[in-house]
Nucleic acid binder design. Structure first.
Length: 423
RNA sequence: GGAGAGGUGGCCGAGUCGGUCGAAGGCAGCCGCCUGCUAAGCGGUUGUGGGGGUAACACCUCACCCAGGGUUCGAAUCCCUGCCUCUCCGCCA
């Protein structure tokens, strides 16, 4: 969420930012709402000040048993109170409208973000590793998966439906091995492991920016109203919702494994086969809370931490700086990590690392207090996948496949798998 | 699921028959003073958000005693609803 005052005073900047995101939005309604709202705030304050003073007088009079004088004042205050009540009602409405408007506004991209229309204009920052050369036609991960009996999509759809997977044997173990490998690596470099609730309330979803704008993209439980997390970002960032953190505690860094659930509405034709796009997938996430002046340095580190996982697994990847048109709703700047997939002969997203600056902090009301200073400021929040596990399974199967269809287990995973190859 | 208790400032905790309560008192913190040091002692001070004001402070004002409604001239204090916590019983992984 953007600051109401900032939007009021800098409509040009907001409009410009929205334009870079391919959005047109008329800010005039917001200006009108705020103008009326603030004039009501001022009137309300005056009336309440008067009421407070007169009430004190009434109290004094009553104490001195001058009931007669008090009666007149009470009569007068009836009118004042009625007016206050009316104004309060109107203010509630306007406040709600202003907030709804702000909640629907995306973050302002950082100036360093390349301006572009869509993903085609994302900028490659660097590349690591060489895509493997095969002297045979490499298979898709779903063919490999079925060949080795470690994935069963037919039965998964019987159990749950399309876009679900049933992992078996070495496949199931690979998921578990990756989860542990990633968590171990992340905790070894200072991230605190957490295992949060996977159903969250509406306030949490609003806090990180999933709602209200993208209501339809998430699974919701009706009674009580809860949401299946689309990413650990939601519960983990909300750990500190409505808190004031002491400066010396920052930066706070968490890592968490959770399953993730997404409706994938609107992606009907896409990635219908295999593990790439599922309603449920595993992911290890990294989340940071920092001081504003540190957040961009921390974004670089965060991205580096995610890359390190791919390097340990010796999976070739590239780092993309998302352009303004492809940037997520809450993000001010994002790097996507794309891993090479031989089965698709292209790079595919496997991690997304973002700096949200104070956008989520303002929604979720997460502040900090500078040592020795009065007042509070919003923290900056960041998060990144480290990594999406389903897609890592895809990458390993496809990159490590052999001519006979066998799959070699990367060195880093062998202690976790207990075997050197599948098949 | 059944029965009961409760939600007050960083923490503990008081709030009488609704009125002068942003809220006593204690602890912790900060600033002074004082005492070789430490401890003790003395005085002062310490919440958040909005609006106005200032070059910036200062300052003025409103709101906030779990949340949202209501009663009233006036509510932390009364009423309703919701949420959460705790205890006991039942049930269950």
């Amino acid at each position: 969420m953007l600051d109401a005052r900032f939007v009021r005073e800098n409509p040009e900047k907001v409009r410009e930012a929205l334009k870079k995101r391919n959005m047109e939005l008329d800010l005039a309604p917001f200006a009108r709402i705020e103008e009326e709202r603030l004039s009501i705030v001022r009137r309300l304050d005056d009336l309440r000040e008067r009421r407070n003073k007169v009430n004190l007088e009434i109290s004094e009079l009553k104490k001195r048993k001058s009931g007669g004088e008090a009666a007149g004042l009470i009569e007068e205050m009836k009118g004042v109170s009625a007016e206050i009540k009316e104004l309060e009602e109107r203010h509630r409405e306007l406040d709600r409208e202003a907030r709804d408007f702000l909640l629907a506004l995306p973050n302002i991209p950082d100036e360093s973000v390349p301006v572009g229309k869509d993903e085609a204009e994302n900028v490659e920052v660097r590349r690591w590793g060489e895509p493997p050369k095969f002297d045979f036609q490499p298979l898709n991960h779903w063919d490999l998966g079925e060949m080795h009996g470690i994935m069963d999509f037919e039965r998964a759809s019987k159990i749950a439906g399309a876009r679900f997977a049933l992992m078996k044997g070495a496949g199931a173990k690979l998921e578990r091995a990756l989860m542990n490998f990633m968590l171990d690596l992340n905790t070894s470099r200072g991230y605190v492991e957490v295992f949060p609730p996977i159903l969250v309330n509406r306030d949490s979803m609003i806090g990180t920016g999933q709602i209200p704008k993208f209501e339809g993209e998430y699974f919701r439980v009706a009674d009580p109203e809860l949401y299946l997390v689309p990413t650990a970002e939601v519960p983990v960032t909300n750990i500190h919702r409505q808190e004031i953190i002491e400066e010396e505690k920052l930066p706070i860094r968490y890592t968490a494994y959770t399953p993730c659930f997404r409706r994938e509405a609107g992606s009907y034709g896409k990635d219908t086969r295999g593990l790439i796009r599922q309603h449920q997938f595993n992911k290890v996430e990294m989340v940071k809370f920092t001081r504003p002046e540190d957040s961009y340095a921390e974004l670089e580190k965060l991205t580096g931490d995610a890359e390190e996982i791919l390097r340990r697994l010796a999976l070739p990847y590239r780092v993309m700086a998302l352009c303004t048109g492809d940037l997520g709703f809450s993000s001010a700047r994002t790097y996507d990590l794309e891993v090479w997939l031989p089965g698709q002969d292209r790079y595919r997203e496997i991690s997304s690392c973002s700096n949200f600056e104070d956008f989520q902090a303002r929604r979720a009301d997460i502040r900090f207090r500078r040592t020795g200073k009065k007042g509070t400021e919003f923290v900056h929040t960041l998060n990144g996948s480290g990594l999406a596990i389903g897609r890592t399974v895809v990458a390993i199967l496809e990159n490590y496949q052999q001519k006979d269809g066998g799959v070699v287990i990367p060195d880093a995973l062998r202690p976790y798998m207990g075997i050197e190859r599948i098949g």
